[in-house]
Amino acid sequence: MIQQIYPAPHHDYSYELNKDFHFSAAHSIPSEEAGKCQYVHGHTYFVNITIAGDELDHTGFLINFKTIKQLVHDRFDHKVLNEDPAFSETDSDRFPTTEAAARIIWESVEAYLQTTENKPTCLQVFLRETPTSYVVYRPKKKGISS
Score class of each variant (00 low, 15 high):
Gln3Ala: 08
Gln3Met: 04
Gln4Asn: 06
Tyr6Met: 04
His10Arg: 12
Tyr13Arg: 03
Tyr13Ala: 07
Asn18Ser: 11
His22Val: 05
Ser24Val: 06
Ala25Thr: 07
Ala25Asn: 08
His27Gly: 00
Ile29Thr: 02
Ser31Lys: 14
Ser31Val: 12
Ser31Asp: 14
Glu33His: 08
Ala34Gln: 05
Cys37Gly: 00
Cys37Lys: 06
Cys37Gln: 00
Cys37Ser: 02
Tyr39Pro: 00
Tyr39Met: 00
Tyr39Asn: 10
Tyr39Gln: 05
His41Asn: 04
Tyr45Ser: 01
Phe46Gln: 13
Val47Gly: 01
Ile49Gly: 01
Thr50Trp: 05
Thr50Phe: 05
Gly53Gln: 03
His58Pro: 00
Thr59Lys: 03
Leu62Lys: 07
Ile63His: 02
Asn64Val: 00
Asn64Pro: 01
Phe65Asn: 14
Phe65Pro: 06
Thr67Arg: 10
Lys69Leu: 05
Lys69Tyr: 06
Leu71Gly: 12
Val72Phe: 10
His73Lys: 12
Arg75Asn: 10
Lys79Asp: 12
Val80Thr: 13
Leu81Gly: 03
Leu81His: 11
Glu83Pro: 07
Glu83His: 15
Asp84His: 15
Ala86Met: 09
Phe87Ala: 13
Thr90Tyr: 14
Thr90Pro: 05
Thr90Lys: 13
Thr90Glu: 13
Ser92Gln: 08
Asp93Val: 11
Asp93Tyr: 15
Thr98Ala: 13
Thr98Ser: 15
Ala101Ser: 14
Ala101Ile: 13
Ala102Val: 03
Arg103Val: 09
Ile104Asn: 01
Ile105Ser: 04
Trp106Thr: 13
Trp106Ser: 11
Glu107Ile: 06
Ala111Asn: 15
Ala111Tyr: 12
Ala111Pro: 07
Ala111Arg: 15
Ala111Gln: 15
Ala111Cys: 07
Leu113Pro: 09
Gln114Arg: 12
Thr115Trp: 06
Thr116Asn: 06
Glu117Leu: 10
Asn118Thr: 08
Pro120Arg: 01
Pro120Ile: 04
Thr121Tyr: 00
Thr121Lys: 08
Thr121Phe: 01
Val125Ala: 08
Leu127Gly: 01
Ser133Trp: 06
Ser133Lys: 13
Tyr134Gln: 05
Val135Trp: 09
Pro139Val: 02
Lys140Phe: 01
Lys141Thr: 15
Gly143Tyr: 04
